[in-house]
Design a protein around this nucleic acid. Structure first.
Lengths: 192, 192
DNA sequence: TGCAAAATGTGATGTAGGTCACGCAATGTC
DNA sequence: GACATTGCGTGACCTACATCACATTTTGCA
């Protein structure tokens, strides 16, 4: 299935657009491809676009002063990624987004998004809904970190995104789960 | 300052509304007051409204199977609170929202919000922006939990919301910070 | 004003998971 | 095909914080 159809299906789950409306909207998107390791958004720089993942996988992460990486999000197909604080408020990025597995994406500028939200009410609705969904997911993740131990978090992730474990190296998964790579290794081998 | 003006100022920071537009919008809100301990949203029930805090303080929390409480958010004046998964998707609430310090709020139904977003583009913009802001705050909180130790989290919270420590009991703050009440107590008395 | 309940302080002890140190694949690249 | 880089597994040790147990203070309210 091509990028256009994947985006169309994705949006169609939330709002109804006429073919003409979708065409106008789709025309705002720029297809791009990235290879493993390439950077989409670099910490400290301005952010002008957000990215809809068609295939492959991205990660959004933060590096603290000691260069310890914390992964905030993996973006699998039909997920969106950006630094939304930077994108909305014209600030510089505090996170980095890069490519974990060769990816096709559709990118959209903040201006085009706002313009389309203004022109077509359903698109405004879609983005309200999408951001709400991200917000809810983020709250759920917070809850998971605060209430579950490492093993439970690991098992939940494995149940929800089994493919992730084939797609990305384990130490990245560890970082996402908020445990050391050693602990993650021990979680599914040895000692129960 | 009255509720109406506080809401007007709050919205005015993000979008420009004509007086007529604001009046129409404000008419959708229902002023309500709650006393300490009263419940606004109960886990397991349907959620029809969201709440804008004018004065006082609310908390949003989750109870796990062992009845351990985790506070996701305090809502101080000009913050919004609801179960946004339930509100947007017609699901039952998974969190509870109750009143921590006697509060005045303005409540808004999901239908009215959607209707106003549809009628007035600026209001749609406001809600996109607001949800984005919540999303960003949630991500920041996640980062703080994953990268900082208890003392750092405590100090950051104290610096950002000094009034919170007068307003709400310490064991609730502990729950928000993700530490036991004993640990929080030790953080600012005894042992450095 | 007096009493129960809620909130807080503090010591002793337990443990999940971090850190360090090492060896051993697997993978890419000149 | 050699060699460097990156990823992974595993033991020994350490620490931040939880849990338990109990004392003390504060608060709400009859």
């Amino acid at each position: 299935m091509d990028a256009r159809q994947i985006l169309k299906d994705h949006i169609g789950k939330t709002v109804e657009l006429t073919d003409a409306q979708f065409d106008g909207f789709y025309a705002c998107f720029k297809p791009e491809t990235f290879r493993k390791g390439q950077v989409l958004i670099r910490e400290g720089e301005l952010v002008t676009r957000e990215y809809f993942v068609v295939s492959g996988c991205l990660k959004t992460y933060f590096l603290n002063d000691e260069l310890k990486m914390t992964i905030l999000q993996f973006a699998m197909p039909t997920w969106w990624a950006s630094d939304y604080d930077a994108l909305y408020n014209g600030r510089r990025a505090v996170v980095t987004v890069d490519c974990v597995a060769n990816a096709e994406v559709l990118s959209l500028s903040a201006e085009d998004r706002e313009r389309m939200c203004h022109e077509i009410e359903a698109i405004g609705h879609f983005f309200r809904w999408r951001t709400n969904r991200g917000y809810v997911a983020s709250q759920r993740r917070l809850l998971s970190i605060m209430t579950n131990d490492a093993r439970k978090r690991y098992e939940d992730l494995l149940a929800q995104y089994p493919t992730l474990f084939q797609l990305v190296p384990k130490h990245l998964i560890a970082s996402y789960l908020g445990v050391s790579r050693e602990t993650l290794s021990r979680l599914y081998h040895g000692s129960r």
